[in-house]
Simulated scan of single mutants.
Amino acid sequence: MTLDLDKLKSLATPQRKEWEPGMRWDGETGYVTTAPISSEEGAPTSEVWNHVLDEFGLDPARYVIDGPVRQSAWTVPGHGLQRSYRARIVERPERRFDIEDLLDTIWADGEYPDNPGAEWRTIQIGDTHLAKGSLDGGGTDKLIARWQSSVTEALNLGGHYEGVHLAFLGDLIEGEVSQGGANIAGNDLTLTESLRVARHLVSWTVQEALKVGNEVIVSAVGGNHGQTTRVQNRPHTDNHDIDVVSAVQQAFELSGLDERITWYYPEDGTNHVVYEVGGTVFASTHGHTFKGGPVAGAAKWWSGMCASNRPAAAAQVLMAGHFHQPVIQNFTSDKWICFGGALETQSTWIHEQNGTTSKQGMLTYVTRDGEPFEFSIV
């Protein structure tokens, strides 16, 4: 068959079909596509996205852009480079909470058995992610209930103690820096509200511990969700998690209720703290300090601390969070690695990556003479 080049040349060139603006919404999720935007205008700002949503009949107060934005670019003769943007839209989580009512639910009195004991009760409290919305595996009302039930159950396990050790291991709040701030859309509390709730819960927890312990030791380290910003590097101690606990300490000191409480925090430039609890030496940090998985990363970090004779070398128990999975590892004959769990139903982000879930709750155990025992997830 012979091709007639003259006829082929005379055929009309079909007009290029560009990416047309539009919206698709199925009642739960969907996509919105902008009209062409000149390259000089740049990517749409949040105000522009709100205007686009409004144009397609979606109330920006109810719907929000979620996740990465896809773009398409092409050249138009006489108009230069044009771009169009396509983004996923989701319904904003319903703000169902009156913050004062939410705080009132925290202050219910708990009763505990009065049996004398010589042990220290440790409760590892981390990855509570207050303000994480229900679509992301949380729901602040549920997280508060789980926090309180976990603490109450832990303090009920053995009656009265020589002391209670409360280790706050970071990520107490969901914060607003994860995923470049994209997680904000799923939060069901503002940042200031989540900090208020966290301070109330920490204060309640300390007061409950005082009911069953002759002494209470409190420590706090900063988690990655507690970071104040990721725009630039900040000191490890510039962290909402540490600020929450230190604010509670100040309240106890001002009220004169701190006589039986000792508080520990990392020194400037560090994100771990080492201290003694009833004859047992603890090292406390958040798991994002480690490189690698929980046990392998913690073991490498601790080995390095031991090799360089850092204070953590003296610890008998290394506590951490971050991985949302309870893990207990007898590192050496006299050293233990203890990762706590999380309170959420699941981390939707982690679950979508690999399907991982874990048991909800806090890790608690008893220590005597440098050895932990009677481990429980409560």
Rank of each mutant, 00 (worst) to 15 (best):
R70M: 09
A87W: 00
T364M: 05
P77H: 02
V90K: 07
V221Q: 01
L58K: 08
R70Q: 09
V281Q: 06
T105F: 08
V64M: 03
A247H: 11
V212T: 10
P326R: 05
A314V: 01
P326L: 06
S149I: 13
A87I: 00
D334C: 15
K7A: 15
A251K: 13
T205S: 14
R368Y: 10
V90T: 03
Q124H: 13
A307H: 01
Y264M: 01
E162Y: 09
R368D: 07
E28K: 15
D114V: 14
R86Q: 05
D114P: 03
Q249G: 06
K300T: 10
K142M: 10
A342Q: 13
K300E: 03
P116N: 15
H322S: 03
E267R: 02
E174F: 04
Q124M: 12
K9A: 14
Q250V: 08
R121W: 06
V245D: 03
G297H: 04
F168G: 03
W301D: 04
H288D: 11
G321S: 11
D369R: 11
G256M: 15
F290N: 04
D4W: 07
M319K: 03
H51L: 01
P294R: 08
G226Q: 07
G138V: 07
E55M: 01
S46F: 00
L143Q: 09
V76Y: 00
Q179S: 12
S284Q: 06
T152P: 03
F375W: 05
G292F: 01
L172K: 05
S84L: 00
A167I: 14
